[in-house]
Design a protein around this nucleic acid. Structure first.
Lengths: 343, 343
DNA sequence: CTGAAAGCGCTTACAG
DNA sequence: CTGAAAGCGCTTACAG
């Protein structure tokens, strides 16, 4: 025994726009207009529709909707960090908070995804299959081809952090160069003569830019710029780097760590070797994260506006989606020195 | 001058399944079968289709797809924390990592959203509008009605952390009770006689369960269980709570902090007042997060398996989506004491 | 202000 | 193994 075809409509558990129209005694067009708050609907019709929606607990099917509007009202946040350290990193946390803040009231959702072990192809096709209206790509290493490829595929993209290589996508970044410069100048003006740096990863703009700023700060004071060790953004990485630094340059009396979390590791190593901070070695960090004030002595550090970073990133993408013109291709956010006890 | 209707198909920038079919010289059905890896397609046809897909750089439109399949291949992660502290919290970070790990290879995406200032209604309708196949709800305060309501609306839901109130949704949680118990017993066996606790928020299961475990641990040793102060999960909150504790119970010689981050604040306060750790006051934390080893002295703490937490959460939801039967309504993950230097 | 109809790009019985 | 056709639940000109 086969069901009559017409029964399928009645069968569904969730009500459709069709059902609302019937209940309200109007056409589907009118229901659609009410839902989308379009003008040109009589008060009577509007009320009837709203009552029906209420009664049936109707919720529009987004898939059907975006099939015709070609809008999904969601944007992707692609994190192309190996994943392990992204979450838990106070910087990333702040950016995420800013992104959400920037989105609030915009009826847009964030779809977060890790590039991680993905070969890129799968992620790319996901992003280009109409899942999202645009993408924010953050925490790139090397000259990651992803943002460029997404942009080439026609997806609006904004990068968080200056992309390396010749990627031609708009980006938002902190002024890392000036931050490094401020840190170096502070150590110089504190009378330190043998200033080292634990730089960030060599394959990230954030690592490079802070290092270059630091180098400029020492150069302008006529100091040597050879005491450089690279580290990833971790406590243990910072400790290991500090150990290597002390090995190679025993007379170090000032260190600029490219991140607070690196500074925490460096300070642990210094304490373990009996070097007093800042008496023997002054330490300056970067970020002004929660670590800066939880460590003893409290960390002198370069503050970057993390939430602002996220908010700006979002704003830039939404503005692009809204079709605004004359948008700046890149935006640099100011950094500032916060002096505490470690330097 | 009006365009002929038929032109619209050719106009589109992105190729459709229709275009692939034409290019491959087969029907849309066949293309669909190849894409979805269904059996019953000749090698010749398959190759022709794959070539066409390659050439046209075809990517299926997900909206159209899920309109008929009623599957979106994405799940929501709803964080109903006031938002500010969620990110940056190492616990949450670990859970997130676990969720992603649990999802890898599953072609499922995570759609993350903050409940935050939302009145709940908007979020609820988003989740029920076919955006996602299921939802993970974490970090709930009080007896948040959201999980219950989502479940009632027919959306598969798993809660991260035991929901308070009479919510009847499956959940995954750490064994917080046993964790609190272990902490208390350790302080007792270390010979402490005046043991306090800085408990977590009173309106969260995680705060309550650890507190109850601690209380049981003291009771069984015949010790008083009155020295209790509540705090949120922050360094400053922990410091303030410690100050209050010392004020009200000057003879405190042992403290169980319901989170490492709280312990960090407590230790800062103790140091400031010249109390030695653990000589004068022993401190035990909870989480075994990055804070535990970045602080001096290193923190004795209760470890909860955060990544496992996230992985289990994901597994539970995916199993439910796959229609598996006899799934446990709740899962408790074991906690263990990690002894270091602070107690 | 309102409705009938076409169409968005897929999947899925159904018939061959 | 293959294709024609119906249908998923919406929006959007178009005509009135």
């Amino acid at each position: 025994m086969t069901e009559p075809v017409d029964a399928t409509i009645e069968d569904r558990g969730t009500p459709t726009l069709e059902a609302v129209a019937r209940a309200a005694g109007v056409s589907r067009s009118t229901v659609s207009r009410v839902i989308n708050e379009l003008p040109g609907v009589s008060g009577r019709a509007r009320e009837a529709v709203n009552r029906a929606i209420e009664t049936l607990r109707y919720v529009p099917n987004e898939a059907a909707r975006s099939l015709v509007t070609r809008r999904t009202n969601s944007i992707a946040l692609v994190v192309s960090e190996p994943g392990d350290r992204v979450f838990g990193d106070p910087f990333f946390a702040g950016v995420l908070r800013g992104i959400h803040a920037g989105l609030s009231g915009n009826r847009q959702l964030v779809l977060m995804m890790l590039a991680e072990d993905d070969d890129g192809a799968q992620l790319e096709s996901y992003l280009c299959s109409g899942h999202v209206d645009g993408a924010l790509v953050v925490s790139m290493h090397g000259s990651d081809p992803l943002p460029q490829r997404l942009a080439a595929a026609g997806l609006p993209v904004v990068a968080g952090g200056r992309p390396l290589g010749d990627a031609n996508v708009p980006y938002v970044d902190s002024d890392n160069f000036t931050g490094g410069l401020l840190a170096a100048r502070h150590l110089v003006s504190a009378g330190r003569g043998r200033i080292a740096t634990i730089a960030g990863p060599e394959d990230m703009a954030v690592g490079i830019d802070r290092l270059v700023g630091w180098r400029r700060g020492l150069s302008e004071a006529g100091l040597p710029t050879d005491a450089i060790v690279h580290s990833d953004f971790s406590v243990d990485g910072g400790a290991a780097a500090m150990a290597e630094l002390l090995e190679r340059y025993p007379d170090v009396d000032g260190v600029f760590a490219a991140a607070d979390i690196i500074a925490v590791g460096a300070m642990r190593e210094l304490a373990q070797r009996g070097r007093r901070i800042p008496a023997d070695v002054a330490v300056v960090g970067f970020d002004d994260s929660v670590f800066a004030t939880s460590v003893t002595p409290r960390l002198t550090t370069v503050r970057q506006p993390v939430e602002e970073f996220g908010r700006t990133l979002t704003w830039r993408l939404l503005a692009q989606l809204a079709g605004e013109e004359h948008l700046p291709p890149s935006i640099l956010l100011p950094t500032e020195l916060i002096v505490r006890d470690s330097a």
